[in-house]
Design a protein around this nucleic acid. Structure first.
Ligand SMILES: [Mn+2]
Ligand SMILES: [Mn+2]
Ligand SMILES: [Mn+2]
Ligand SMILES: [Mn+2]
Lengths: 151, 151
DNA sequence: CGAAAAAGTTAGCCAGTGCTAACTCAGGAA
DNA sequence: TTCCTGAGTTAGCACTGGCTAACTTTTTCG
């Protein structure tokens, strides 16, 4: 799921160190994922997404939202024009949907595990970006069928 | 668990957006946590930790390790002198122990959930930094007593 | 011992993600 | 209609954490 930053120069590497490359790549796409999700939410809740919605949502400044949106536009996830609301491209919508699904699984899983709603909300927001397909499937399985080897 | 970067200016904020501040702060301490853990491992496995050990472990260049170690030294987690091995301060050792414990819980939890060892190793490496005390305790509880409301 | 190889250092670059400050624009109240 | 205010923009800065390239030091080995 992701956009590559400058520091993702890949090399031929032996196994153990590969984990850290995955994590660096996870982090590179993290902000994009959170933004498209937030933009999709704003649009479905309030009809449009304005920069101020994101300022409040992420607790960052105006200027930061502007920079980030410019990057997302550069990367083809978002479209906006001066003083206009922010919209998602098809690719942005796809990423938003996919990210939200994964996010929901992680959050539900934490709650099912006995974690409070508030903590589940906060922790899932960070954890979601590091959950591989395999782990996500394991979470879904536990939510559906219970913990392994428990009838 | 952590060191504050420039961009951690805090303000009086309403609840929802606070999650993202937590995550930014998690990320700020992430590299420090992984490094002290790797340094502690190298010392216990090979007696000393050399920069090259970290180069291989993290799949980054020499120069990057050097920069990072300088930051960790600045932050009082590490001591080293030119051309000498890298050692941990008391604070560094504390952070390493704490981080390793948390890491082990997360990794064991993923494996207990049915995730393969390789995926558990990779995913836990990113997830660990976003697991709050409460979620960590929930994981320990599940490992010890099984999934909630299962006799 | 001496030279080549390995390890470490330093300088200079870049992108991401945050900030403040100063500006411009748009829309509503007086 | 004018002006104030809030929203948006832009410029300029700092720090993290990547990189390459050129250099120095240390270690190893013939
Ligand atoms: Mn998130
Ligand atoms: Mn993360
Ligand atoms: Mn770890
Ligand atoms: Mn880690």
């Amino acid at each position: 799921m992701g956009i590559a930053p400058c520091c993702m120069v890949k090399g031929k590497l032996n196994l153990p160190s590969k984990s850290y490359q995955r994590i660096r790549s996870d982090h590179a796409s993290e902000v994009a994922e959170d933004y498209v999700e937030a933009i999709a939410d704003a649009i479905s809740e309030r009809g449009v997404c304005r920069a101020m919605d994101l300022v409040k949502h992420f607790a960052v400044t105006h200027a930061t939202v502007n920079n980030t949106i410019a990057r997302l536009q550069r990367d083809g996830l978002v479209v906006t024009e001066p003083y206009q609301p922010i919209d998602l491209t098809a690719a942005g919508r796809r990423l938003a949907t996919q990210s939200r699904k994964r996010h929901e699984v992680v959050e539900s899983f934490l709650k099912a595990m006995g974690v409070s709603a508030a903590t589940a909300a906060t922790d899932s927001e960070g954890i979601e970006h590091h959950v591989s397909k395999e782990t996500l499937n394991a979470m879904k399985r536990v939510l559906a069928d219970g913990w392994p080897s428990n009838p």
